[in-house]
Structures are given as structure tokens and as C-alpha cells.
Design a protein around this nucleic acid. Sequence first.
DNA 1: AATTTGGGAAACCGAATAGTTGCATTTATA
DNA 2: TATAAATGCAACTATTCGGTTTCCCAAATT
Lengths: 106, 106
Amino acid sequence: MRRDVFQAIADPTRRAIIALIALQAMTPNAIADNFNSTRQAVSKHLRILTECKLVKQEYRGREIYYSLEIEKMKEVDKWLEQYRKIWETRFDQLDNILTKINKQKK
Amino acid sequence: MRRDVFQAIADPTRRAIIALIALQAMTPNAIADNFNSTRQAVSKHLRILTECKLVKQEYRGREIYYSLEIEKMKEVDKWLEQYRKIWETRFDQLDNILTKINKQKK
DNA sequence: AATTTGGGAAACCGAATAGTTGCATTTATA
DNA sequence: TATAAATGCAACTATTCGGTTTCCCAAATT
């Protein structure tokens, strides 16, 4: 089964879960309270997030606290890096053109 | 049908297509040459990428040149922004701790 | 000890996904 | 003008996905 960060963040519910637990660790029940779907559905999402290492668990008694594994998010950032280079270059080019136009006006 | 950037980049083939056409515009046939699947399969991916505005088309005779709509990629960057803040903060905190330790040594 | 609570796992279901083959359409070429 | 090439679209298929319901187990509470 393919299980990478990109597939994990494709689902809007999972992105919402990520946003929730980014601030503080939460139990599945607490997370599920924020959604209309069942706890089991949330549990499934958590499993997917755990499998691709986007989330880590901390056992405390019978409760499990889930929190974001921020390091894994950098993978998306790393992938984006190559495209960021492109749009920055293009912005620079546009900037150069605008500078030239301004100089001509003066 | 849900059709956003996150769903678009979830598929590895689509990410490969994006990487290909980021450098220069390409026709479906030329793109398909780089994959094992059929031209039609690639065409479907291109349709999805077009629908979510990640890709733009340029008609030239009977050929269609596809190229990356780099602006749309910024949406992912924007989403990532909030998490970048988190990992930069954590890095700063770690940095502060290391600085303190170094000062204590001296 | 009996009951409640927190959470995972399995079985099932409908919809979406990614691929295929086949066909239609438009443009270029012989 | 007949044919080849470039492409999109539709129908079909197997698999995955996201959700539900049901059930089980371990930890807490009474």
C-alpha cells in the first residue's frame, strides 16, 4: 500500500486533523469531537497519518495522545523547493523588467 | 468532484508530470514517452491537472503544449507556511538552548 | 466484581481512482 | 483526396478510499 506524505495530506479531514494536533497533542476522542464523522473514521485517518510518520503517539494510561511530527512536514517543503526556485526566478525577471521600465520613464 | 491541488499532487505520476513540464512546455505524446502507461492515462492526468489549474494548455496546430502554472503551486506553499513557522520556532528554541550551553561552558 | 470509558480492528458498502481499450475528431502530409 | 498523426472522450475494470456498524480488549471507575 502506497503511504506517503502527499497521499496523507490529500484528504481535507486529515489536513484538519494535522492542523488540530499541530498545536497540542490530542486523544482520538478529543479530535473526533471536532468532526461530524465517527471516532472510528478519525481513528482510520490517524492510522494513515501514523503509518507515514506524520504523527506520533504517546501512551498515557488507556489514552493515546497524538501529535504532529513536524519533521515529516519538511518533506513537502523539500519537494516544493524546486518550484519555489522557479517562481522566485520569474519574479526576479519581472522585477528587472519593471525596474527597466521605470528607468526609461525617468 | 473534489479537485484541489493537494489531491492533484497526491499521485506520483502526476508529480512526475509536473516535474517534466516545469522546465518546458510539452505535448501529451512527449510526456507519455516518459512513462510506462498509455498516452490516454497521461491524458487523464493532464485533465485533472488542468481542472485544478495546475497546468495550462497552449494550442499550436494539432498539438497541445502543456506547461506548469507555477502560481498554483504557491497554494501548497501557503498551506505549509503555518507549519514552517512551527519548525522554525522549534529550531530557534533549540538554538537558544545551545547558545546558553555554550555560554555556560565559557 | 461489575460497569463504564478509551481506543483499535474487522467486515462491509458506495464512491472515487487509475488504468485499459476502442472510437471520434481535427490537423498535417503523401 | 486519402492517409497518418495528435489528441480527447467514453465505457469498462480492478483497486483503493472514506465512511459506517459491530465487536473486542484494556484501563479506569463505581
